[in-house]
Amino acid sequence: MERTIPGKYQNGKEDRFANNLNRNKIHPQKFALLVACGSIMMMFAAWTSAYLVRKAAGNWLEFQLPPAFVLSTVVILLSSLTLHASYRAFLKSQEKQYRYLLLGTLALGFVFLFCQYRGWTALSQMGIEIGTNPSGSFVYVLSYVHAAHIVGGLAVLAVACLHAFAQKLNPTPKRKLRFELTFIYWHFVDLLWVYLFLFLLSQQA
C-alpha cells in the first residue's frame, strides 16, 4: 500500500475530511467495505445456523442439490480468476487484457445467475417448491438473497467495465482504489457462494 501525498487522498471528494495519517495502512473505504462484508456474512451465518437448528427438529425432506449449482460454483470461481488476472493486467498497464478480462468477469457473472436460475427450475421440477419443506425453503432463501448480492456485484462490475472502456488505462491511486473495492466485493460474493454451496452439500444425506 503506497503512502499518499500529504493532505490528499486522490480519490473521491469525501476524502477532503480524511487526514493523511494513514493509521491502518489500509484505505478507510476499503476498510469500511470489509466491515460491511463481515456484516453481510453475519446474516448468512445466522441462516446456516438456523438451518442446523431447524434440521435437528425433524420433519426434514432430504433431496440432492441439482447439478446446476455445481456448475454455477465453477463459473463463479472462474470469474474470480478472470477478475484477478484483469487486476494484474491493470497494474502492469496491459490495457487489452485488462479490458477484456474485466468484460469476461461481467459475462461470467451473468452466466452464474443463469446457472442459479437453472438450479431453481430444476428444484421445482424435482417437486421442491419454496413452500414444500423447510429443507428446500432454506436453499431458495440462501440462493435468492445471495443472488441479490450478486446483482449488486454485477452493477459494480458494469461500472468498472464502463470505466475500463471509456478511459485510457492509467493506474492512478484513485482508479486503483476503485478497482480494489470492486475486486474485494466480487471475491466476497464469490466466497460467500462457495461457503453456502459447501454448507448445503455437507448437509446432504
Binding site: 453481510i40 453475519m42 445466522a46 423447510p134 425453503s137 432463501v141
Partner: peptide, 24 residues
C-alpha cells in the same frame, strides 16, 4: 454490525412465511 444482520435474517424468513408460503 454483528447482531443487526441476524435480526434481518430473522425478518426475511418471516417475510417468506408471510408471503411465499414457507414454513420456517
Amino acid at each position: 454490525l454483528l447482531s443487526f444482520p441476524v435480526l434481518v435474517s430473522g425478518f426475511l424468513l418471516l417475510m417468506f412465511d408471510r408471503g411465499m408460503g414457507t414454513s420456517f
